[in-house]
């Protein structure tokens, strides 16, 4: 694994891309890594494009800038492909993970000639099946963990269960659904 992994998240306000970036920082911290998870704030409103970032490393991280040449990009909302330069600066030896029900052949032409690896996952289907509602961030989190190989899947699941137990202490009924969303996403991202 590279010393430093940089990830950029694209989503829309309200979809939880920021939360997903913070959760990824959380679980990576749980495996002993140095982490950063931070959002880029513009005018806050539901539905507006938002960006969030992760740096994950075996060594302390000092840089405090946004990420312009990410190793990985996660697109939480496929409608952004038409309006945001999601592949800008994305390294060719990296990968992009897109939340879509469409086959890859329909998505690739929208990626401005990006030559790296392209992964898709239908986070809506997974979320509805596991949770009965559309919360794409858990499936997208599992997808990026799988694609980056940044941590062992068992360790990831164990760490996420702890996180959910804490986060949903007052709503334990949603914990199993979120765990199921992670299981399904690890299987279905390709």
């Amino acid at each position: 694994m590279k010393d430093l992994i940089e990830i950029r998240w694209h989503g829309r306000g309200g979809q939880g891309a920021k939360t997903a970036a913070l959760l990824l920082a959380d679980v990576a911290f749980g495996t002993g890594m140095y982490v950063q998870g931070f959002p880029e704030y513009g005018p806050e409103r539901m539905g507006a494009p938002i960006t969030a970032y992760n740096r994950l490393s075996a060594n302390p991280i000092r840089v405090h800038s946004n990420i312009y040449e990410p190793d990985y990009v996660v697109v939480v909302d496929e409608t952004l492909l038409d309006s945001v330069g999601v592949t800008d600066g994305l390294k060719e030896d990296g990968a992009i993970v897109i939340n879509t029900a469409k086959p890859k052949e329909e998505i690739i032409p929208k990626l401005k000639g990006y030559q790296g690896r392209v992964y898709t996952i239908d986070a809506r289907k997974i979320s509805i099946e596991a949770l009965g509602k559309y919360f794409p961030n858990s499936p997208m989190l599992a997808a990026i963990v799988k694609v980056t190989g940044v941590m062992d899947e068992e360790k990831f699941l164990e760490s996420m269960r702890k996180s959910y137990n804490h986060k949903f202490a007052s709503r334990p009924e949603v914990i199993e659904g979120n765990m199921k969303a992670l299981f399904l996403a690890l299987e279905e991202v390709h």
Binding site: L22, A25, D26, F29, Y34, V35, Q36, G37, F38, P39, Y41, P60, I61, H64
Partner: peptide, 12 residues
């Protein structure tokens, strides 16, 4: 401390 850059960034 710097607004958002450190205030809203999760770090070790």
């Amino acid at each position: 401390q710097d607004g958002f850059i450190t205030s809203h960034a999760v770090e070790n």
